[in-house]
């Protein structure tokens, strides 16, 4: 029995030490990547290529999900608001929900599972098949050549994807409430225009998406680079990317929201 307790304590200690090590490696890696980003910035075509793979190829899932989320918001919002006779405010509800919360958060969650996992798997496989080692032997730094372009491509794509999500979502809400249900079109748009504040809603939403973009892609590239060079290692890292970045998005969203919208009515 005491032996079991000792083993248990040792196990916990081992995991703590391992996590601290990982955190240290991650910070070191992140600093290196920022330091070496200058090189990839000067060769912007590398980033453009990655924007295509991470950003453009994520468009379909973002657009389709945005449309459905907007339509559901329209339906639910109309259901509730008509009880109080204020169904013309449904445009405001759809727009504010999307721009402040759902756009950044849901787009980032989708981005993490679509593009983040792909980035991790790709970098992890390149490591497992010795492509990164080969690159090092060719005197080319894999962090500058492979990792940094993917990171910046993700950071650049994320705000555009979230904006796309919100825009399509608002259109979805419009389709359901104005076109299908028959809410007055003029008041749908004008109430929305009056209620959505550029500084508080749009700018804050954009800040959120930028933070999420950095978090998701940083996690994705680190997990790929740090993955054990085996098939199980890469698949485990891919899963961890999705789980960790989803939790990071939700946690960061709470913190950011608390700071941004505190004391607003």
């Amino acid at each position: 029995m005491p032996r079991r307790i000792v083993l248990g304590i040792r196990g916990v200690g081992h995991r703590v030490i391992e996590s601290v090590w990982r955190l240290g490696r991650a910070s070191h890696f992140f600093m290196l990547m920022l330091l070496k980003s200058g090189i990839s910035m000067r060769r912007f075509h590398l980033i453009i290529r990655e924007i295509y793979f991470t950003g453009v190829l994520s468009l379909i899932i973002i657009v389709v999900s945005g449309l459905f989320v907007g339509m559901v918001l329209g339906l639910q919002g109309y259901e509730t608001l008509q009880k109080y006779g204020s169904e013309s405010a449904v445009g405001t509800l759809v727009a504010l929900s999307l721009v402040r919360e759902l756009g950044p958060v849901v787009a980032a969650l989708l981005f993490a599972s679509r593009a983040g996992s792909a980035i991790t798997a790709e970098i992890g496989l390149m490591k497992a098949t010795e492509q990164l080692a080969a690159m090092e032997m060719m005197a080319v730094d894999p962090i500058a050549r492979v990792v940094a372009p993917r990171f910046w491509a993700g950071v650049i794509s994320m705000p555009f994807l979230a904006a796309m999500f919100s825009a399509v979502g608002i259109f979805g809400g419009y389709l359901v409430t104005v076109v299908l249900i028959g809410v007055d079109e003029g008041s749908f748009w004008s109430q929305m225009q009056n209620a959505v504040d550029f500084r508080y809603d749009i700018v804050n939403g954009v800040i959120k998406t930028c933070v999420f973009g950095v978090a998701v892609t940083a996690i994705a590239v680190f997990e790929g680079y740090d993955a054990p060079p085996t098939a199980e290692g890469v698949s485990g890292a891919t899963t961890r990317t999705v789980v960790t970045s989803s939790l990071a998005i939700l946690g960061l969203d709470f913190v950011l929201t608390a700071f941004m919208f505190r004391g607003m009515s």
Binding site: M126, T129, Q131
Partner: peptide, 20 residues
């Protein structure tokens, strides 16, 4: 080291071609 590696190269056991 990187400077030196520009003058040497290695053929990896499994090729290690860049798959992308």
């Amino acid at each position: 080291l990187f400077q030196m590696r520009r003058k040497m190269s290695m053929l990896f056991q499994f090729g290690a071609l860049f798959t992308d």
